[in-house]
Design a protein around this nucleic acid. Sequence first.
DNA 1: GACAAATGATACTATAATGGTATCATTATA
DNA 2: TATAATGATACCATTATAGTATCATTTGTC
Lengths: 140, 140
Amino acid sequence: MKLITRNTDYAMRALCHIAQQKKEAVTVTEMVAALGIPRPFLRKIVQTLSGEGILASCKGQGGGFSLRKRPGDVRLTDLIRVFQGTIQLNECIFKKKICPMRRSCALKREIDGIERDALTRLHKVSIASLIRKGGRHDAD
Amino acid sequence: MKLITRNTDYAMRALCHIAQQKKEAVTVTEMVAALGIPRPFLRKIVQTLSGEGILASCKGQGGGFSLRKRPGDVRLTDLIRVFQGTIQLNECIFKKKICPMRRSCALKREIDGIERDALTRLHKVSIASLIRKGGRHDAD
DNA sequence: GACAAATGATACTATAATGGTATCATTATA
DNA sequence: TATAATGATACCATTATAGTATCATTTGTC
């Protein structure tokens, strides 16, 4: 069971790191040093976050990334949506066809309920909530 | 988010179907007709369930599969373990290395908690509980 | 102006998981 | 003996994941 992928995980760590710096802009170099994430991969991730309007970027020397949203407004579900595709509950087993048992499938009802609750909880996890909970997000 | 794969889903449907028949043994042919699952795939699945001791099998004409356990004793988590590998919570991001932030990672704590609760609920779903909830498990 | 340090854009790759298919062997019943 | 069933296994196609690699562009500093 994997609720979040590395993309999502790394993204959230990077965002928490940025949120905790007092600086104007945080560079990838700095984040690599702090978080230990492979540089090209992290670059791709923050570029995506920039494209999504979650981070702002400044090019050139002295540039870097900064938060464009309030820490309380960036939730795990947002990142999951960006990096893991639309958040869909377990789509019905019969791909193109309409599921012949959708009216009455107890199994699907159960799974849906469990997934829905997990999503509700993931939605409550934001940059702000993680920072509040203390715990450092950088490596040693 | 995908808590269960088709393997798991099909397995549970097949098991529920078998549990609801009064017969000694249920054949794959019969299950294919009832559930609409691709025959060779379903064969592989029930063979696996047989190997796991969840189903008993009889070869030869007049043979088929039957439940070897009580319906209350076959849970979704059992099938997830069989078809989706060991149920592991999100393993730490840094593969071989020891995660440098395991002492203090608020993100991991949150995800762990959510996954753990989902597993607890998946553990409560069994053949028996699904059958009890009514709802048919066969196709039209 | 040249250089260095930063991001932007984009293409590529390797591995594993998922969702199957296909075949041949074996067993048991009619 | 023919037939209907499972057993064992090998194969395959697609997608997602987790990256890597390159070149272009911008911008501050000397």
